[in-house]
Design a protein around this nucleic acid. Structure first.
Lengths: 210, 210
DNA sequence: GTCTATATGTAGATAGAC
DNA sequence: GTCTATCTACATATAGAC
């Protein structure tokens, strides 16, 4: 009797077919985009065939939406929820940057993916973007109040927010260019991002502190 | 005799067919990407038919490369040439940002386009990216020397360069999101970018000045 | 140079056996 | 649930008339 852990329905086991499909699709759609992705490639990546893809998700469009909406939702909630416990500006900036970078480390291709999707169909993601509405408004108020109290210089709160997001997201969007220019590996890139968890908030706060 | 300016080979005239194709292709490829673009759409946009596209450019791939390499080359030379007359850091940053933003105003979809292309084929653009090699090295030295002279704080020159490019490029990459979030028009977006020609260098210099 | 008509390849989707 | 084989649609590309 060798089999000491019989059919307990995958206690240690490999992920389900559906999960394998989702993971494969995320990978392929992220690198190739919706139009460039091929169902055949998703199937190969998942170790199954095309027909089974259509059995689980009726069409390419539905597969895409399923995968993408899940990622986008997680993205926006991670980022904006990070502000909920903060009530002064500088800690809020630190928390926001940390949450943003941590999330991107999980899914480095997502920013480019989202940018493309929004470019292709600006209305399509309105729901997800709006999900963070209150947190964003609250952040803008925090900036405005800090400005009135004379803690920071005179800056348009929306412009500050754009700058923060730029400093977080752009290294990932330009990742291949950075790797080429600086001749670095995936590993060195990750270390650079880890450093930025500290340097980006410093950079921002230095430039707005009164 | 009404025709006072006869066949002087298009003095005022409309652009050549080839130029119309290039303009149309740039527009379609920029918005849809290589994979999502359709030759039929390029033809419609140029006011001709598909067969004529293949007469001028043998294949979709060649059309894409022609249009894209032209844009990318112009992009990198515009940006890096702006540094040539500068020999101190702060004016160099101002010139760089201005050149970057001006170029992007000309072709707002280009940053996203380049990011996608580099993601799809990291080797493909090596030549263009390397075109700015000396200017980039020179900029990094300027940062290093300013640091040694105590004019700026202790910062990794490459990280500073990433931050500058992020603050320039990202608003264009995230343009649809910004438009949605802030509920602004194309016109208001352009005004925001014009403001950034001034505010971005200020933002950067404030954060690095010793 | 510009067109209409057509050939060729390929990707998404389905049918049906196991 | 998973497979093989096939259908259908469409996009690139070509042939050939004008």
């Amino acid at each position: 009797m060798v089999n000491i852990a019989p059919s307990k329905k995958q206690m240690v086991a490999e992920p389900s077919t559906e999960q394998r499909i989702i993971d494969a699709a995320r990978k392929v759609f992220s690198t190739k985009g919706m139009a460039g992705a091929r169902m055949q490639e998703v199937a190969d990546e998942a170790g199954i065939n095309k027909a089974l893809l259509h059995y689980y998700f009726r069409s390419k469009q539905l597969l895409f939406e399923g995968v993408f909406k899940q990622s986008a939702q997680r993205q926006f909630s991670c980022i904006w929820d990070s502000l909920k416990q903060c009530d002064s500006l500088f800690p809020a900036i630190e928390a926001f940057v940390a949450a943003y970078l941590d999330r991107m480390i999980e899914e480095p291709l997502l920013p480019l993916f989202i940018a493309n999707e929004l470019n292709r169909d600006p209305k399509g993601l309105a729901d997800f973007v709006d999900r963070g509405k209150e947190s964003r408004a609250r952040f803008l108020r925090m900036v405005e109040e800090a400005r009135k109290r004379g803690e920071i210089i005179d800056i348009d709160p929306r412009e500050l927010l754009v700058n923060i997001m730029a400093l977080c997201a752009h290294p990932f969007i330009a990742q291949p260019m950075l790797k080429h220019i600086h001749g670095i590996t995936d590993d060195a890139f990750l270390r650079m991002i880890q450093k930025r968890r500290k340097t980006v908030p410093e950079f921002i706060i230095r430039s707005i502190r009164a």
